[in-house]
């Protein structure tokens, strides 16, 4: 069911270190290459991966069309957020008419907990997203992941929602990529989370076109 793309497609993944943002970007990259696309990802590895803000750039397109590992503000066709604060933080990357898919998880940063900075409420965060994309898809991803037995697989739930809406990659390619990256039981529950994400998207009629 791969729909394919004719031009470069830019995905911004916003997450908190440890949530699996890097695994998500790598999964998409592996699936995209197996589908014959050219890919580039731009990651921030090293110091900020654990509980810091993590922004991943994923780009795919026809062979030789993708060159830069990053893209600039206003150039993301879609933003996949694994956490609401980080989704709002990265809104500047979204293009005009860009789509927002965000998990409804909120992880208050330490700066908010120790009282040095004010933490917006969940409603404020969702409001910031819907003011940019009125059709922003807010996904109860942790609950869905928890229900399939892997509360850490929020990233894979979001991948399911993303791919059901955009249909760029075939399900086989995505599932193979997941199992390539995550062997054993973690792989199985991740595939289950991916499928649960697809199912949620279908049941909630967030599918375009």
């Amino acid at each position: 069911m791969s729909r394919g793309i004719k031009e470069v497609f830019n995905i911004l993944i916003a997450s908190v270190g440890g949530q699996g943002g890097l695994t998500l970007s790598r999964t998409i990259a592996i699936a995209a290459v197996s589908e014959g696309f050219s890919v580039r990802t731009g990651e921030t590895l090293g110091m900020s991966q654990r509980f810091g803000s993590v922004t991943s750039f994923v780009r795919m397109g026809p062979q030789n069309a993708v060159m830069s590992p990053t893209f600039s503000e206003g150039m993301a066709h879609v933003m996949v957020g694994l956490e609401l604060t980080e989704s709002v933080r990265n809104l500047r990357y979204l293009s005009e008419g860009g789509k927002i898919l965000a998990a409804d998880t909120v992880k208050p940063p330490i700066t908010a907990s120790v009282g040095t900075a004010r933490m917006p409420s969940k409603d404020e965060l969702v409001g910031a997203l819907t003011s940019v994309d009125p059709e922003a898809v807010i996904v109860p991803a942790r609950k869905i992941a928890y229900d399939v037995g892997n509360p850490r697989a929020v990233n894979m739930v979001m991948l399911g929602v993303f791919n059901r809406i955009f249909g760029i990659l075939s399900d086989d390619a995505v599932i193979n990529a997941i199992l390539t990256l995550l062997p054993g039981r973690r792989g199985e529950t991740s595939v289950a989370a991916y499928k649960a994400g697809i199912k949620w998207a279908e049941e909630n009629k967030v599918v375009q076109g």
Partner: peptide, 20 residues
């Protein structure tokens, strides 16, 4: 013009990497 997007985002608490 499509590259001249500017977006106001609400003030957010920073999230510097902490000790695990």
């Amino acid at each position: 013009k499509t590259l001249q997007v500017s977006r106001e985002t609400p003030a957010l608490p920073p999230r510097p990497p902490p000790l695990c």
